[in-house]
């Protein structure tokens, strides 16, 4: 069995909307519920830990009832950073393995979760090749990166719970900041194998207002038409 942490602590500042993006409606349904409904259908998920700010708990709780969600759902308080939110969610995990996903990525398929869970590797992330050039720089170019060596890191990700918890504790002690968990785990233990599974081009993160428009098209193309 595995626990699923669903990060939902974002405030959606780039959406120019008073409501965080994960609670806005996408194809008539709150963004967060697209993912929760899919997690709810996977037998091997023991529970879902939703990391969110206190003020949205009752709204999410109501959604869980409205959508007939049957999995046991726990709530963990969101932290000041994504890293702190993951750490908060991890404190509620009791299973050997944990899967991390974020509510702002509603186009993950049930099959994506399943192949992560069923993988024999303990630590697996979803990633895709980068089809654009990335360079180092601020207002001037300061260095080059080899595109063929880079991977666009997506979610969901699966980890050995103890390994990840331990890496997070080290990061707290050293006050190191990471933007996602494969980087964090790799930084503290490069002997750990973290497998990369190829993701899909439509597993986008809803970040800017235009993503809701694109998201609506993705939903129609990949979910309604597929059905």
């Amino acid at each position: 069995m595995i626990s699923a942490i669903l990060l939902s602590g974002g405030v959606g500042s780039r959406m120019h909307n008073s409501m965080p993006k994960q609670y806005m409606l996408l194809a008539g349904k709150p963004v967060i519920m697209h993912t929760v409904e899919r997690l709810d259908t996977i037998e091997s998920i023991k529970n879902i830990i939703i990391v969110c700010s206190e003020e949205y708990r009752s709204a999410i709780d109501l959604m869980l009832k409205q959508y007939g969600i049957r999995k046991f759902v726990k709530f963990a308080p969101a932290g000041q950073t994504r890293q702190a939110s993951v750490r908060s969610g991890l404190s509620f995990v009791e299973t050997e393995a944990v899967m991390i996903h974020e509510a702002a990525r509603p186009f993950v398929q049930t099959e994506d979760f399943s192949r992560l869970i069923e993988s024999t590797d303990e630590n697996v992330i979803i990633g895709s090749p980068i089809n654009y050039t990335v360079i180092k720089g601020d207002d001037c170019v300061t260095g080059l990166l080899e595109r063929s060596e880079l991977v666009n890191v997506q979610l969901p990700q699966k980890f050995n719970t103890e390994l990840l918890k331990s890496a997070h504790e080290k990061a707290v002690k050293e006050e190191k900041k990471f933007t996602e968990d494969a980087s964090l785990l790799y930084y503290y233990d490069q002997s750990v194998r973290i497998r990369i599974m190829e993701g899909t081009e439509y597993n986008i993160k809803i970040t800017n207002p235009i993503d809701m428009v694109i998201g609506d098209m993705i939903y129609r193309e990949y979910f309604q038409r597929r059905a």
Partner: peptide
Amino acid sequence: TDELAEYD
């Protein structure tokens, strides 16, 4: 019809 298509 559209809204529930995802659930088959």
